[in-house]
Simulated scan of single mutants.
Amino acid sequence: MPENVSSRRYRHGEPCWADVQTRDVEAGKDFYRAVFGWRFQDMPTPDGRSYAQAYLDDDLVAVVAPQNPHQESLDSEARWNIYFAADDARAVAEETPYAGGAVQFGPEDVADTGVMVFVDPPGGGTTGVWQAGTHTGTARYNQPGALSWAELLTPEPQAAVAFFQQLFGHEVTEYPQDDGGTYTRLMVDEAEVAGIVATDGAASWQIYFGVSDVADTVRKALAAGAEVLVAPEAEDEETPGATATLKDPQGGVFSLLEV
């Protein structure tokens, strides 16, 4: 169900935020403005560059940020990141090795906005962890133009499920798939909040943004320079609502979910 969440804090273990790191912030702004109708406010970074806060009306829903120097040196493609809310990000970082993962970055205080950590589950799939300060997360969820779902594609799904259960205490529901595999959904207080599914390729997060019309949004994205990776598909038991997966002109992969 569409939800406005600006008045509450996200629960421990809920996906709460998404941002994209890209080589060209201005080009990223142009693309996502055309696709989702976001407006932007530029904010300075300590190294003299800037990132762009993305808004729907007055609600902050995402950020388009410059790549870090390491990503730039590798000429990396743009990447969408997902963040899970944490009551104590430092405690999550300390527990990560015992859960079979690795801390990639942090913990780091981001001024008064919160504490950030990036962790790698077993099998891969870098995951952000966010302890809220003044910034609690996306002000809209499961609405057009806002974060609506996230699922980890991983070659080690069972280990990844155990990892998130140990860090966040997730309960799970499991859905058998036609190929004999299982689609697992992580749960917080009996609500399904994210998915984990097996893949033969490298691990990655698939991040979904809500739209009112998938086919129309795909047309807008194509006109703005996107590549269609998965054409619009009708809803099924595991993923209600039509979906599609796109790559932005700088390589950032994201999905659409009709809400």
Score class of each variant (00 low, 15 high):
14 E>R: 06
15 P>S: 06
15 P>Q: 02
15 P>F: 04
15 P>L: 08
15 P>C: 13
18 A>H: 08
19 D>E: 15
19 D>K: 05
19 D>N: 11
20 V>T: 09
21 Q>S: 14
21 Q>Y: 14
22 T>N: 07
22 T>A: 01
22 T>P: 03
23 R>H: 08
23 R>S: 04
23 R>D: 08
24 D>Y: 02
24 D>I: 06
25 V>G: 04
26 E>C: 10
26 E>F: 00
26 E>S: 15
26 E>Y: 03
27 A>T: 08
27 A>S: 11
28 G>C: 04
28 G>A: 07
28 G>R: 02
28 G>N: 05
28 G>W: 00
28 G>Q: 00
29 K>Y: 06
30 D>I: 11
30 D>M: 12
31 F>S: 05
32 Y>P: 00
34 A>H: 12
35 V>D: 04
35 V>P: 07
36 F>M: 07
37 G>V: 04
37 G>N: 10
37 G>W: 13
38 W>D: 12
40 F>H: 14
40 F>W: 12
41 Q>K: 15
42 D>H: 04
42 D>R: 07
42 D>G: 07
43 M>W: 13
43 M>H: 13
43 M>F: 15
43 M>R: 14
44 P>G: 12
44 P>V: 04
44 P>I: 11
45 T>G: 07
45 T>A: 13
45 T>C: 14
47 D>W: 09
47 D>R: 14
47 D>L: 03
48 G>E: 04
48 G>Q: 06
48 G>I: 10
48 G>L: 08
48 G>N: 09
48 G>K: 08
